[in-house]
């Protein structure tokens, strides 16, 4: 199988989000970066499917030069190659993102059997890039998938719902967005990290179209600013805790 997985570089925000002065972005000076857990699981799934059925896995990202770090991280867990659509770091809206992915897919000599996405991006959470890509390429798309298996030339895809599991069978080529929990991604090994450094990345700089979902500014939600009541230190706090549990009626 020829598999593409699309990932987005995002900051690891920790306990508190701080905005830049112009409120256009998160202050990232002291932060690390990652991709959404959904997307990391997408990469792991691509690697597993290729291990089982043969083929090639490719990770694609639209992001600043530094996003190469995320492509290398995924190569370290077994992704074979990368496509980096290099930007100036400003965000692309979902239509622009979808169109750039479609153009990159069309430019490849071989079509993909499967294009994997995260169910939603970690930061902007638009819930739509994968559907736009599928529509433009004329491919079927299933979302929020927690299990994939190849049955002949179809994929059996399972989704978790409040009532249990919904099952879809989708002919390939197809687009599938996945959720964390579909697998437990492996940790990169040292040799894996070494190999990742030498794997090929195809880089290009597409022009950024005008945004149609145009961000004006970011706003931090109001926090309750509640002051936690300290019930005590160590085991001695237990009676005070139980008093609270009784008073709210959960005992």
């Amino acid at each position: 199988m020829n598999i593409l997985v699309c990932v987005k570089r995002v900051p690891l925000t920790g306990g508190k989000i701080v905005l830049t002065e112009d409120a256009q972005a998160i202050q990232t000076r002291h932060l690390g970066f990652t991709v959404s857990p959904h997307e990391e699981c997408g990469a792991e799934e691509a690697v597993r499917l290729v291990e089982q059925h043969g083929g090639t896995s490719t990770a694609l990202t639209i992001g600043p030069p530094e996003a190469e770090e995320q492509l290398r991280d995924l190569m370290a867990i077994g992704v074979d190659q990368g496509i980096h659509l290099v930007t100036d770091g400003s965000e692309w809206d979902p239509q622009a993102t979808g169109a750039a992915i479609v153009a990159a897919v069309r430019a490849q000599p071989e079509p993909y059997d499967l294009i994997l996405f995260g169910n939603e991006s970690a930061d902007s959470g638009n819930f739509q890039v994968q559907v736009r890509v599928a529509q433009a390429l004329g491919l079927p798309v299933v979302n929020g998938i927690k299990a994939i298996s190849l049955e002949g030339s179809s994929l059996r895809c399972e989704q978790e719902t409040s009532a249990g599991r919904d099952v879809y069978t989708v002919p390939t080529p197809a687009v599938v967005s996945v959720k964390e929990g579909i697998n437990l991604p492996r940790y990169p090994s040292v040799p894996g990290r070494m190999r990742a450094k030498r794997k090929p990345i195809e880089a290009s700089q597409p022009a950024k179209p005008q945004a149609r979902l145009a961000m004006v500014r970011l706003v931090l939600p109001e926090t309750s600013n509640k002051q936690a009541e300290v019930l005590g230190h160590g085991a001695e706090a237990a009676p005070a805790v139980v008093e609270i549990l009784q008073s709210i009626g959960v005992m």
Partner: peptide
């Protein structure tokens, strides 16, 4: 005004 980061951040945006 829409939710980002699962609700930890909000975004004001225009829809063209």
């Amino acid at each position: 005004t829409r939710v980002r980061w699962g609700g930890s951040l909000l975004e004001e945006a225009r829809l063209l």
